[in-house]
Design a protein around this nucleic acid. Structure first.
Lengths: 228, 228
DNA sequence: AGCAGCCCCTAACATCGTTAGGGGCCGGTC
DNA sequence: GACCGGCCCCTAACGATGTTAGGGGCTGCT
């Protein structure tokens, strides 16, 4: 597998870190493993990188790297939605991607490109400068927060075999058997709270965001509940 | 300080962990330090707690414990906004609280109480069961995502002395000096993107959420852009 | 007296991020 | 040809981490 790598670059480091991340998760990503992945011993990494933090910054941008920007067609609303969906898909695609990205603003080149494109579309849609900036911030905050919650274990029945649907059913049971006099709403909404269909859950929030933003435009964009 | 603690309970563990978190941050929170805080050696913790993970679950609920639920007055919208503001304030109040809470769904008793109250108000406002559940999920996802981004270092000028405003100005300079032909929007919106006023940034998103949710109600709640 | 549970201990394990210091190799300069 | 400085990697080690194994008191019940 690992041929005598001709040169270790920051790029190859990022690629190696990405492979380790996929294999062992964020908790299992160590300097030594990344070093081994590029055919080198741990201490040598510090020639290319100041910290593990800096390595994670590299990894962060490498994750954003394969973000596909949505086609420039349809209403601004449809483009906005697509942006949100693809961002979520990106975070879900690679193991622990959300945890890596969370709390890591340091923008690499790929991140900058995505942000630039996003702002361009928002301004073209008629949003003011401040609103456009805040809207893009809002979207990324929502997506990151959502995926982070989505991927967190529902309780203690986490990595231990339990599938997502199974864990959801267990959580539902937990809610349903709560004391009904102190937690009437939790009991009543047990099914809704533990609905494992994360796609529609995400879509719900996304539509609310789009609606809220649409109200900012002079003509007030098309309403949300349209057919089809 | 540390008197010969009569008994180590899960409660006292949570309190100790909270103290260590405030002093040394999440990265500096180790089993040994928490143990020392309760007057015990590290291995003894494993009698009360299975994992460090479980300790963090305890800590998580201890953080939520001092959440003050907003007064039950005003429109549902005002109550919704207050909920968001207080949740953010809570996460900002304690060091690294957002990082602890992020990706930790396991609901302790305090978390359940807050959720119960939130759902009660949303249903009283007229939201359907599924919508109420999703709305509360939406709010917490936004708040967590926002605070997480808010607290992440703006670039490499992080813990190194630079104040928030100073870091923001540096980041603005970074954006402003980007190649203007490939990043015209980033250059143009440099000031808006790096505006250090996080309160209005947060409020913006919160208002958008409220607007989006209001559109779901039959009478369509009062519009956002009111005077005052 | 003895047994059982509770609660804490000392040691130790493997692994981690990081630093110190050394050594080849490669280009250019006297 | 000799020297030299930058580049890139090495071995060794430091302190700290989460976690487990095994032991030992103490309390209360039989």
């Amino acid at each position: 597998m690992a041929e005598p790598t001709p040169a270790v670059t920051r790029q190859s480091l990022a690629a190696a870190a990405l492979r380790v991340l996929e294999r062992d998760g964020l908790a299992g990503l160590s300097m030594r493993k990344v070093a081994a992945e590029v055919g080198v011993r741990a201490a040598s990494l510090y020639w290319h990188v100041r910290n593990k933090e800096e390595l994670l910054d590299l990894l962060n941008d490498a994750l954003i790297a394969d973000a596909e920007i949505p086609p420039r067609e349809g209403s601004w609303r449809e483009q906005f939605l697509e942006y949100g969906r693809r961002h979520r898909a990106l975070l879900l695609a690679r193991r622990d991607a959300a945890k890596v990205v969370a709390g890591r603003l340091a923008p690499g080149p790929h991140t900058l490109a995505v942000l630039e494109d996003q702002l361009d579309r928002l301004r073209a849609a008629g949003f003011g400068d401040a609103d456009a900036a805040m809207a893009s911030y809002l979207l990324s905050a929502y997506v990151q927060g959502f995926v982070l919650q989505e991927q967190s274990p529902l309780s203690a029945a986490e990595a231990a075999g339990a599938s997502r649907g199974e864990a959801a059913r267990a959580a539902g049971e937990t809610f349903r058997t709560l004391p009904g006099d102190t937690y009437p709403n939790l009991v009543a909404l047990a099914d809704d709270l533990t609905d494992p269909d994360m796609n529609t859950r995400f879509e719900f929030g996304l539509q609310r965001l789009a609606d809220g933003l649409a109200a900012l435009l002079p003509q007030g964009g098309t309403a949300s509940g349209g057919p089809s």
